[in-house]
Structure formats: C-alpha cells, structure tokens
Write a protein that binds this DNA or RNA. Structure first.
Length: 493
RNA sequence: GGCAUCGUGGCCGAGUGGCUAGGCACAGCUCUGCAAAAGCUUGUACAGCGGUUCGAAUCCGCUCGAUGCCUCCA
C-alpha cells in the first residue's frame, strides 16, 4: 500500500485554471518535465525559486510513493537575441564577448547552476538533457510538422504556421489568448521578415556565415528554434502525452503555448495533462532586473556581499522563506521578511533538535494522527506549503510544552511525531537543519557542559557576577544559554 | 494599448460566504536571582466605491494600484 492510494492530491492546472484531482497516466508512475535554464549567465534567485518549487513537487510525489521520472533540460543551444534576421543567439553573443568557445560558456554556467541548486538542497532530476544533444530529434519533429502541413520552409528557415494551426486547433488555450486579438494588436511587420504572419515562430533558423553554433539539416546549416527542444526532449523521455509540465509563469506565453502547438501538430495529441506554473519572485516589491540593479545573485545573498540586504542568509533560511509562500503566488523578497523567516527557521530547527530527547509518558495530550493528516491535507491541496508550515509550528508548540513538562506524549506518539516532522521538514520541504550540520564537534559539547556546570555552581553560590559573565560572554560569541525545567542547554546562533 | 494574476492587521504570508491560519515584531503575564529561552493572553486586517445576500474580506460591477506576459527571460 502506497501513500498515494490514500492521499487525494489536487493540483492547479493552468490549462483549465482549476484545481483538479491528480490522476497519473499510468498508475504509480509520474512523468514530469520542467523547463530548465539557458546557461549564458549565472542563475539568479528568481530562477532558483521556480526550480525549488518543482523540487518540492518532485519530493512530494516521491514521498507519496510514486515512481517519478523528472526531466529538466539545459538550454545550451542559445536562443535568438531578437526577431530580426541577423539575430544572434545569446550563448554565441556571450562567447564572442568573452572571447571563448560557446561550449565554454555553457560549461561555466552549467556548473554554476548545479552548484547553486545544490546549496539550496535541490535534488538532481532523473534526466537532465541538453538541447545540443537532441538536434536530430528536433529535426525529426520539424519534418513531421512540415509533413502534416503546419510548417513552411523559406530561405533555409522553417516556420510554424500558427494561423493554419489555429484553424483546426486552439492556439492560445493555455494563456487565455485569442489569435484574432493577437493579430489585431501586432506591431508593424518588419520589411525583411520572412514569416507569413507575425504570430508564426521559428522551428529552424538558417545560420549566417558568422554564426558559430550550427548544425546541418535538410534545409541547410542552421540551428533549432526557440521552443522546439522542450517538445523534442519531453516527447523522447516521457512520451507523446505525459503527466506534469512545469515552468515559470513567464514561460506560459509564448513558450508553453508553442510547445502545445508543436506537439499537437506533430502527434495530433495534447502533450501535457497538468500544466503547473510557478510564480515570480520580486525584490523589495519590484521586478528583479539586472539593468536597474534590482537584482541579487544567490552567492551574494549567502555571503552577505551585497548592498540590498543587511546580513548574509543561509540557503536553508532562504528555502524556508520561499516555502512559506505558495508556489503560485508572487513572493516579495526583503530584508525584513528574511529576518522574520530566519527566526522562525531557528525555532523550527530547535524543536527538531529536541524532539529525540523528549520524555515520554503514559498519555498524550496531542492527537498526533489527526495532526499528521492535516499536514497531508495541506500538501494535497495543490502543495500548500505555507499551510503545512503553520501545522508544523503547531507541533513546535507541542514539542516545547512537552519539553517543559506541561504536556505529555506516549512512546508511540513520539515516534510518529518525530518521523512525520522529519518527513515533512527534511524530505518534502527539503529544509536542511544547519545547526545539526555544523554541530560536528563533541569537543564543543564537552566544553559547554563544563561551562554550564560552572555557571550553575556559581548561581547556587549566588555568585551572579561569575554566572552572568559566563552567560553574557558566551552570548557575545553567538552561543545562547537556555535555562529550562530539566536543566540548561545551549544553541549556536 | 491588449491579455492575465493579484491588492489581507506594524512586516511577511495562508484562507474561507457565517466558525482563531501561521511566522516575525509589539504589549501584558507565568517562569527566572535578573535575563534569555519557553508557555499563556491580547490585535475589532481584508485597496476604494457600489451591488447580490439573513450575512461578504470571500460572489458581481466599476475605480485606483501592483506584478507578469504581449520581443529572449524561471
């Protein structure tokens, strides 16, 4: 018996705009595709939020007992900088700027991407395919689309015929747009545009002689278009129809809309059953943007080397902060909000640390089973991590009460509470306990035990000058002394 | 300009047609030698203006504002 058989998960499907019961294509298996980064610069924090949201989704599916194949691509072929004919792809542009090979750019920023995600404790996906590794597959799809009559070749480039497609299909169903409206609002056609219609998009672009990234094709040397790689790779590894497709809100149009069109044109089937979109991260209430300086890189945040925040924040605190908001809501990052989260995070982790040492008794004042199901209910409701966290804090309160001897818990309930807390905090939310990670020295424990003992002796002798000196000086070092009912403990700040 | 999403107490952030989300901050109390930690108690929030309803912050309309997309972008 797997958990998914008893827990009824509902997800917000962008295609219908509603929460729907999640039923996978194949019982017990989930296929999930998430649009990965274009590796032409360092990942920024907004990217991280999106990938973190889907990491949490991935983790929850796994926790429920599904076998999950999670595919997240690396876009290393570059995309056009602009829509003009002489458009240059981003990666080639960066390569020229830095006087290095395009693949050097790709390598450098792929490494940065992986390092950063690892800091935030993201699990690696099951498959991480690259666009350049799937040129052949992309060419095959283009052939298929041409054959079906939804694409045309001109001057060595191939374009998707959106108007034609819209006659038999619904282009715009994901983003809630109508082709007629789009046509009505279009800016003037540039004179040299090869496209029949401004809404058409490139499947294959002819490479000009100076273009470095190029591959042979039936239409001459060129490179694949904007949206094709995701269709090629998702189809290859997950099938023509699969369960979940995720990505940032900003990809909804045109990227995801075009993916649907490409897949429906080539296979005649709707590619995705549930579209999930993660919302944006703003900084101090405004869009993150490199050009205005309203931007912060993960590394700068962790090191504290930035002009925006008052202090460094650990990746675990940042993750906790992000999990306190629902993935479909815009989240605003600010120093105040992070400070509040940091304190909440510390309180949660201290409860986690004291869980194991809790004294048990003959009765429980805490209905652990009922509480546990509330946690699942929160997650089952479209991965509602903020509500889950509110329940986790209910447990924190209980843990502290039991610790203070004001309430009691049975051995069985304690075991269930502990395993449930660990599952939700560590496995599902992916929040690491950094106090536990750093606490690798038995020496420190020994020294602290000695100091606590000396302080207590001083207090017993009413030598408060000495006891306060120990307490205050330790505090200055970032070590907090805590006097509880059952003796004194300490924690590192 | 068009489309979409959203506007919640000092800050962040859930949620629902009538029943306390939660975190942080603040105040009072308990505990303490004094503190800290922990616990308890208190906050008459739901952008504005109308409307529907026995009842709306939750539904509808309008206004204002924010964010995203409309050209690559998580």
């Amino acid at each position: 018996m797997q958990l998914y058989q008893t827990q009824e998960l509902r997800v917000h499907n962008s295609l219908s705009g509603k929460k729907e019961p999640f039923v996978p294509l194949k019982d017990g298996y989930v296929g999930m595709y998430v649009c990965g980064p274009t590796v032409y610069s360092n990942v920024h924090l907004g990217n991280c939020r999106t990938f973190m949201s889907f990491d949490m989704v991935f983790r929850y599916f796994k926790h429920l007992g599904y076998k999950v194949r999670y595919v997240r691509n690396i876009t290393d072929a570059g995309h056009l900088e602009n829509d003009a004919d002489e458009g240059e792809d981003k990666i080639a542009k960066k390569a020229k700027l830095e006087q290095i090979e395009p693949m050097e750019v790709v390598q450098r920023y792929t490494v940065d991407f992986h390092n950063t995600l690892q800091k935030f404790n993201l699990l690696p996906p099951s498959i991480e395919p690259t666009a350049t590794g799937h040129i052949i597959e992309q060419i095959e799809i283009i052939k298929e689309i041409i054959e079906k009559g939804y694409a045309y070749e001109i001057n060595g480039s191939v374009y998707f015929d959106v108007v034609k497609f819209n006659e038999s299909n619904d282009y715009g169903k994901l983003s809630g747009r109508k082709l007629e409206d789009m046509i009505a609002n279009t800016r003037e056609l540039t004179a040299q545009d090869e496209k029949k219609n401004p809404q058409d998009f490139a499947l294959w672009k002819k490479a000009e002689p100076q273009h470095i990234m190029r591959w042979p094709s039936p239409w001459g040397d060129g490179f694949p278009g904007w949206h094709l790689e995701c269709t090629a790779m998702s189809t290859k590894y997950l099938g023509e129809t699969f369960d979940i497709h995720g990505g940032g809100m900003d990809l909804k149009f045109p990227h995801h809309e075009c993916e649907i069109a490409q897949a429906e044109a080539s296979t005649g089937k709707s590619p995705v059953r549930y579209w999930l979109h993660a919302n944006m991260l703003t900084l101090n209430g405004k869009k993150m943007s490199k050009s205005t300086g309203n931007n912060i890189y993960p590394a700068e945040m962790i090191s504290g080397d930035n002009d925006i925040l008052s202090k460094p924040y650990s990746p675990a605190v940042v993750r906790f902060f992000m999990m306190q908001a629902h993935y479909t809501s815009i989240l605003d990052l600010s120093d105040d909000a992070l400070q509040a989260s940091e304190k909440g995070y510390n309180r949660l982790m201290e409860a986690m640390d004291s869980l194991g040492g809790l004294k048990t008794g003959g009765t429980s004042n805490f209905d652990v089973n009922n509480w546990r199901q509330k946690c699942y209910d929160a997650m089952n409701d479209d991965f509602n991590t903020p509500v889950l966290i509110s329940h986790l804090f209910d447990a924190v309160k209980r843990i502290n009460l039991i610790k203070e001897g004001q309430q009691s818990i049975t051995e069985d309930d304690k075991a269930l509470l502990k395993s449930t807390m660990e599952a939700f905090v560590y496995d599902i939310l992916g929040i690491e306990n950094q106090s536990a990670l750093n606490d690798d020295s038995n020496t420190l424990d020994g020294v602290m035990e000695l100091l606590i003992q000396l302080r207590n002796e001083a207090r017993a002798n009413k030598d408060f000058a000495t006891s306060d000196k120990i307490r205050d000086d330790l505090n200055a070092l970032g070590i907090q002394i805590k006097d509880g009912k059952d003796g004194t403990t300490y924690s590192l700040n």
